[in-house]
Simulated scan of single mutants.
Amino acid sequence: MTAAGPLIEARDLSVHLPGAETMTPVIDKVDFTVGEGRTTGLIGESGSGKTMIASAVIGLLPEAATVSGELRLRDEELLTAGEKRRRNLRGHEIAMIFQDPLSALNPAQRIGRQVGEILRRDGLPRGEVDRAVVGLLDQAGIPDPERRMRAYPHQFSGGMRQRAMIALALAGSPSLVLADEPTTALDVTVQARILRLLASIQAARGMSMLLVSHDLRVMSHVSHDLVVLYAGRVCERGPTKRVLGRPRHPYTKALLASVPAVREASVPADPLPGAPANPMARPSGCAFHPRCPLARERCKVEVPLAREIEPGRFSACHFAEEVTP
């Protein structure tokens, strides 16, 4: 599919949280776009800032957080929009599928009531809301939706709860869905079904998706574009096939090497040494330099800026040209 243009565009997006002495940029000048009808993946180890970025897009950051930079939905700047406007955008323009549906869904309300909340808020009569909810649950692959809409979250399996979360996210016909690790808590076979479901719904509706994951296999099958994050900064971004096919940042290469080969038993996984950097206390210079095999003195003192190393490919590495596949 050819992108018609960016639906979401972030430039120098930063999120600051209170540190020991001052506000600390846990997300530091991040750039990315999500094209119309496309999926952009945010990938990195735990603590890299993936969920924080998704929370910034939908406007659900902690109260103590401050945000700067640019974040545009089509021609509208979201960071300067009032709370009432951001609330109206949630559900209708931007929706979120949370990582843990058991904690995201209200345990005291029936599934149908939760899925239909935005429809009731829009003033639809009860009969129309119920019919729409049945249709949404059916589209999300929940069998016998007329009966299951009366169930409570604890009466659903993990995969069924995630399908209910998808139905809830789709209720307002959003242009953009933020999927935060939507398959992490599910077994492998259920993961595959949920991913196929998301892909089919996206194709049918022409919606865009920002997918948060630490799973390179998921990204390789689902995303069109990829943003690799480390300690709240972008290491590399570009079309998924090109980023994974020929990484141009040592961190991306290390992530790929850490994934066990499925078809080649002779290629063992090579785990990343060390622990991820803490965005609240990054090392000076390039945050990845304590774990990087290409690190030199320059890397310890100078933060590398993302630069276009080939059309559509950006790398924040002083020595990107030396990174071999």
Results as ranks from 00 to 15, higher is better:
residue 210 L to N: 03
residue 224 H to T: 08
residue 240 T to G: 07
residue 177 V to K: 11
residue 186 L to I: 00
residue 176 L to G: 13
residue 227 V to M: 01
residue 170 L to K: 06
residue 226 L to F: 07
residue 192 A to T: 02
residue 230 Y to G: 14
residue 240 T to W: 02
residue 194 I to C: 05
residue 235 C to Q: 14
residue 243 V to C: 07
residue 207 M to P: 09
residue 214 H to D: 05
residue 192 A to H: 04
residue 185 A to K: 05
residue 169 A to Q: 14
residue 236 E to V: 05
residue 178 L to M: 08
residue 195 L to F: 09
residue 202 Q to K: 14
residue 203 A to W: 06
residue 188 V to E: 12
residue 210 L to H: 08
residue 179 A to S: 09
residue 170 L to M: 11
residue 231 A to P: 14
residue 163 R to H: 08
residue 210 L to D: 03
residue 242 R to D: 15
residue 231 A to C: 15
residue 190 V to Y: 10
residue 228 V to G: 06
residue 204 A to D: 15
residue 204 A to R: 15
residue 172 G to P: 08
residue 193 R to P: 06
residue 208 S to E: 08
residue 201 I to L: 11
residue 183 T to I: 05
residue 189 T to R: 13
residue 187 D to K: 02
residue 205 R to Q: 15
residue 184 T to E: 04
residue 243 V to Q: 04
residue 176 L to A: 14
residue 221 H to A: 13
residue 244 L to N: 06
residue 192 A to I: 00
residue 223 S to C: 10
residue 177 V to F: 09
residue 192 A to Q: 02
residue 172 G to D: 01
residue 208 S to A: 15
residue 241 K to H: 15
residue 213 S to L: 11
residue 167 A to E: 06
residue 175 S to L: 13
residue 164 A to G: 13
residue 214 H to M: 02
residue 167 A to S: 03
residue 220 S to V: 00
residue 193 R to H: 13
residue 226 L to G: 04
residue 226 L to E: 10
residue 197 L to H: 01
residue 211 L to H: 06
residue 185 A to G: 10
residue 202 Q to P: 11
residue 242 R to Q: 15
residue 184 T to Y: 04
residue 211 L to R: 04
residue 187 D to Y: 12
residue 187 D to A: 07
residue 191 Q to V: 08
residue 169 A to N: 13
residue 191 Q to P: 00
residue 220 S to M: 07
residue 176 L to C: 13
residue 209 M to T: 10
residue 200 S to M: 11
residue 223 S to Y: 01
residue 217 R to F: 04
residue 185 A to T: 08
residue 204 A to I: 10
residue 239 P to C: 12
residue 242 R to E: 15
residue 205 R to V: 09
residue 225 D to F: 04
residue 215 D to M: 03
residue 214 H to P: 11
residue 163 R to S: 13
residue 185 A to I: 04
residue 175 S to N: 12
